[in-house]
Design a protein around this nucleic acid. Structure first.
Lengths: 228, 228
DNA sequence: CCTTTATGCGTACCTCATACGCAAAACCTG
DNA sequence: CAGGTTTTGCGTATGAGGTACGCATAAAGG
């Protein structure tokens, strides 16, 4: 038998409680004291099971990731596009993912499962293993970045909804000197930034799709370039 | 004349001091108290010129960005590739950029200058203004994400250099069950993660170049797709 | 029953951001 | 030049958050 007093909680419990708080009130609400209180324990009790807060965050990151959904039938483009969208949805469900300072390469089971899923989408595609990883890394980087952007914007929107609508395009018009930055000025004049719905889910979705399209197009071109 | 006591410092001074600290010791070392001390002022004096720490960070973000370098001659691909690499170098010079919580769309002069530079690279390319913005956004997202990744990895490397070399591939071999994640297992077996230099600057550069190549390839394909 | 070992947790200490209010300085008016 | 006005400098204080330390407590072994 194991010696010593029996633990009343373990790391998984703590992680769960922390995730619940983050889901409900955001990552900022997750403090050691708060987590402990939520579990009916004293603050310092947590430190027997978790080295420090950073470790807790790492545990949360891994535990909160959901399972990757099964890929649809079709060719690799459809599959990979689906995968990218799935990543985006998963992140959207837990926006605090993006706020947790990343600490290293993925090694948790859930993260690896996603990686496997992406590689599965590329099954049969004539690319070197290293290239496949490159493709997936690049895509994943893109998706995360886009999610971060959309999150940031919607955050700013919540803080000050009224100001946002036409304001940004207007502000740019004031700041941008056509002499110093002609290319930008032209785009601003074209009204690209004037849309009422720059941060509509719909519109951000369109941006995302466009970027995704570009990237997949690039992968396709690269494949073609190899076979010829 | 203006009434009242004359200010002995202004926001720009504060920003400069804060940037100096961040450059020397990282963003974590930047606290209001520390900045004040570095300037020979009292902590609370800063609040007369800066609303709060978030605002300071925003100011830093803008002030620390360097000017975009002039684009090389050539076609848009060369220019845009150069631009992306320049962004990466700029970020590498001030890694704390990536740690500062982004607060909204770019509006500072330096950031706009970079945006203009990217759009200039696309001058004459047959794309709608909105599409150009999409391209630049996507590219910028990718570069930032890649920079973040490389930064994270090298961070982990500094903490524990010895463990890293072959360790990651080894760890994956243990964790990855070929039955549950066949596609990943195949890649792991191929030794993609075994490189001694996964985090060599050189190797990360290669990853970056590959992703960049894919993306640009995608833009090219998109352009071609439009003209036909 | 006493020793060993591991856990629960109260106390205490630091570091930070920041609200508040008073004092000092510079300008304006009479 | 005296008082009023305005704006800056900053000391004090508050409260949140992370975590080191050490003792009390519980469980197992001898």
């Amino acid at each position: 038998m194991k010696r010593g007093r029996k633990p009343t909680i373990d790391a998984a419990d703590i992680t769960r409680a922390a995730i619940a708080i983050a889901d409900a009130e955001g990552l900022a609400a997750v403090s050691m004291a708060r987590v402990a209180q939520e579990m009916g324990n004293a603050t310092m009790a947590l430190y027997r099971h978790v080295k420090n807060k950073d470790e807790l965050l790492a545990l949360m990151w891994d535990a909160a990731m959901e399972e990757p959904p099964p890929l649809p039938d079709g060719e690799w483009r459809d599959k990979l596009g689906f995968w990218a969208r799935a990543v985006l949805t998963a992140i959207r469900r837990r926006p605090w993912f993006l706020q947790i300072p990343v600490s290293g390469p993925p090694s948790g089971p859930k993260n690896l499962a996603w990686l496997d899923s992406a590689l599965t989408a590329l099954e049969g595609v004539p690319l070197e293993p290293g290239e496949k990883i490159g493709v997936v890394m690049g895509l994943s980087t893109f998706v995360q970045g886009e999610a971060r952007l959309s999150f940031t914007l919607s955050q700013g929107f919540e803080e000050d909804p009224a100001q946002f609508n036409h304001q940004y395009g207007q502000k740019l018009r004031e700041v941008v000197d056509p002499r110093r930055m002609p290319a930008l000025a032209k785009v601003v004049e074209a009204g690209v930034f004037d849309l009422d719905d720059v941060l509509d889910v719909e519109d951000l979705g369109a941006d995302f799709d466009f970027g995704l399209h570009l990237f997949l197009e690039g992968v396709a071109a690269h494949i073609d370039g190899k076979s010829t």
